[in-house]
Computed example of a mutant assay.
Amino acid sequence: MLIGPADALLVIDPQNDFCEGGSLAVEGGAGIMPLIDRLAARFDRVVVTQDWHTQDQISFASNHPGAAPFTEIEVVYGRQMLWPDHCIQGTSGADFHPDIASTVRKALAVIRKGYNPAVDSYSGFFENDHRTPTGLAGLLRELGVKRVFLAGLAFDYCVRFTAEDAVREGFESVVIADASRAIAPETEAAARESFLRSGVAEVSAYRLLT
């Protein structure tokens, strides 16, 4: 598959807290970082997203007495999963994994999301209220991007919703499946079913690196 000037790589939340040893670790998360670094070298346009939460983030189970992580509550904008505290601003857990350092240096922008304590954010394009934009769509249009490739963490949440919002914003959207990792098999399967309905394609890193 040829990568051209109208393509961009979106690297989704390659942060320490989502890798082994982090507070919301995704199995195999650290292992994909060198692969993402290799992929980034093939793209002229790279953008990285970063969860950037405050301690009082609405999605932290610790802010809801008696609530457990990985359960859902109802909030103003709908159903919200509760998570362990993660990617808190200024902590090592929010930092990018060291194996992705050259990708971060190359990135044209870092899109920080989830910094509003009242609204969580999975997608790199919109907060979870589905109304508040991050500015990513405008940046990509200014760069002349028509197609985005996505890699990172986690496949079934932030990669998924960024990929689907990319389609809604008028971009071709391709998830690099083996350069992403999911939190759980059930939500990974649900993401793949949703991709089929929404027009998100999947590709292997091998097709982009050879």
Rank of each mutant, 00 (worst) to 15 (best):
residue 105 R to Q: 13
residue 49 T to A: 05
residue 70 F to W: 15
residue 52 W to I: 00
residue 142 E to C: 01
residue 101 A to R: 15
residue 131 R to T: 11
residue 52 W to D: 11
residue 78 G to C: 07
residue 148 V to S: 04
residue 171 F to D: 03
residue 150 L to R: 01
residue 47 V to T: 03
residue 184 A to K: 12
residue 162 T to W: 04
residue 158 C to P: 09
residue 50 Q to N: 09
residue 55 Q to M: 07
residue 104 V to D: 10
residue 132 T to N: 05
residue 87 C to Q: 09
residue 102 S to Q: 14
residue 137 A to I: 04
residue 133 P to E: 14
residue 146 K to G: 12
residue 89 Q to A: 14
residue 146 K to C: 02
residue 50 Q to W: 06
residue 186 E to H: 11
residue 60 F to M: 04
residue 153 L to Q: 12
residue 115 Y to E: 15
residue 169 E to A: 13
residue 129 D to F: 06
residue 144 G to F: 11
residue 59 S to W: 02
residue 70 F to L: 11
residue 142 E to I: 02
residue 171 F to E: 07
residue 147 R to E: 12
residue 152 G to K: 03
residue 120 D to E: 14
residue 174 V to D: 01
residue 68 A to E: 15
residue 177 A to N: 01
residue 119 V to Y: 03
residue 79 R to L: 11
residue 96 F to R: 01
residue 106 K to P: 02
residue 167 V to H: 06
residue 59 S to Q: 12
residue 99 D to H: 12
residue 121 S to C: 15
residue 151 A to C: 14
residue 103 T to S: 11
residue 75 V to Y: 03
residue 80 Q to G: 02
residue 176 I to V: 15
residue 97 H to P: 05
residue 134 T to C: 03
residue 63 N to K: 13
residue 71 T to I: 10
residue 122 Y to C: 03
residue 94 A to D: 12
residue 142 E to R: 15
residue 136 L to V: 06
